[in-house]
Amino acid sequence: MLIPHPLLGARDAQEFTYLGDASLMDRPDPNGPEAEAAFCDYVFLRDNPAGVHRELWFHEQGDRSWLVVTRDTVTHEILGAELARDVKRGAQT
């Protein structure tokens, strides 16, 4: 596979380490109500759809960026890739 790195263009997927569901970026509020239950969901429950999925990939043998890659897990078509940092900042504002 080729991962379309937002800064570096198409890069060999072998340069990356795969983590999975990008919902891992949505860490629950540790002080919120039912924090433990929220963390249980966060840690143990992941989506694994056959179809379009937002995933975290780490450019380990590259620029060390974490990317959010939107990928169809059936066709492996990649619909987009963003710096996770930007995604997180965007979600915060």
Binding site: R64, W66, A84
Partner: peptide, 10 residues
């Protein structure tokens, strides 16, 4: 790096 970029980028 995950913590730095994906959890607390600010």
């Amino acid at each position: 790096e995950f913590a730095r970029q994906c959890l607390w980028p600010d």
